[in-house]
């Protein structure tokens, strides 16, 4: 859908430009290029979090219906071991889900995959769905204790957020999407968010991957090198739980095994919108209740 819009908006543009390229005269091309640079039509989309939808086909959030599974092997189906079932109830861990869509094919009466990205959360428990209802064990006591501190943190970082990205063993998919945040379409910079080279300059540690064993020390050292207040955001299923790579000899099974995680961004990989949502949620610029769709 979006693509079509883009195509429509650029058709006129493109046909005009082809003539310029084909004209052959290099000087002419030069001036055309120059005028093209000058004509700085902004490509950035207005509200990437709410005002922007993915394609219909996009595999994003999963809705869980109250139905009794008729398949015994439902939990064996999932490559990321996100589904657990005791024969009557289904427990889906969105923190593990890699959005492959196999469960919907196997049991369309229970799983429905939507085209909206899965919402990032502050508490790991909030990613667990139990037959359509949010797990009631969501509220943890320590959340209340740290609340004051977190409010102070988000107050300081509200308008300016410097990010240090660390790949702790991801497949590079999340990196592709994080890089996309910088492009003209999403343009994360306009939210006062920018990527920095040194952890000394950073406020957010954006971590991807299942925290591979070989990266564990480096990840800790990066966190230690950051000045307070600092926020850790786990991006992608691997970072939330180990994802498809799970908890093995080579991984630790999620960033929260190594560092205190403040925000979990589910998805494999999460879309740029989802990552942006997570970052804005971290500094309370988005209210957690305002889940779109």
């Amino acid at each position: 859908m979006i693509c079509e819009e883009i195509i429509m908006s650029h058709k006129k543009d493109a046909s005009g430009l082809r003539n310029s390229v084909d004209s052959g005269d290099s000087k002419h091309v030069q001036t055309k290029i120059m005028s093209d640079i000058m004509r700085d039509d902004v490509e950035t989309i207005k509200d990437p979090v709410n005002g922007y939808t993915n394609s219909q086909e996009f595999r994003g959030s999963i809705t869980l219906f109250d139905a009794i599974p008729h398949q015994d092997s439902l939990d064996k189906l999932c490559a990321a071991k996100a589904i657990e079932t005791d024969g009557r109830n289904v427990r889906l861990d969105l923190g593990k889900c890699i959005m492959c869509g196999r469960c919907q094919q196997a049991a369309p009466d229970i799983f429905l995959i939507g085209s909206i990205f899965e919402t990032p959360v502050k508490v790991r428990q909030d990613l667990i769905r139990l037959s359509g209802k949010l797990d009631s064990q969501g509220q943890k006591p320590y959340e209340q204790m740290g609340k004051e501190l977190k409010e102070k943190t988000s107050k300081i970082l509200r308008r300016s957020l410097a990010i240090r990205e660390v790949d702790a063993g991801s497949c590079n998919g999340c990196e592709v999407e994080i890089t996309a945040l910088n492009n003209a379409i999403y343009d994360i910079e306009r939210f006062g968010v920018h990527f920095v080279a040194s952890p000394r300059h950073a406020d957010v540690l954006l971590v991807t991957g299942p925290a591979s064993r070989n990266m564990e020390i480096a990840l800790r050292r990066t966190f230690e090198a950051m000045p307070d207040p600092r926020i850790v955001v786990a991006v992608g299923a691997c970072a939330c739980s180990g994802g498809i790579f799970g908890d093995t000899y080579a991984t630790t099974g999620g960033i929260d095994k190594v560092l205190p995680v403040d925000i979990y961004v589910p998805g494999c990989p999460p879309t740029p919108q989802a990552i942006l949502y997570g970052l804005l949620l971290a500094v309370d610029r988005i209210e957690a209740s305002k889940i779109n769709g």
Partner: peptide
């Protein structure tokens, strides 16, 4: 720079926000 790259870009006041934030942050 942002506009020439077809981006919206940060607010012109962003450097102030950055400075204010840094002043309130700890040092390592």
């Amino acid at each position: 720079k942002a506009r020439t790259q077809k981006r919206l870009g940060a607010s012109v006041l962003q450097p102030y926000y950055d400075l204010l934030k840094l002043l309130k942050k700890d040092e390592v």
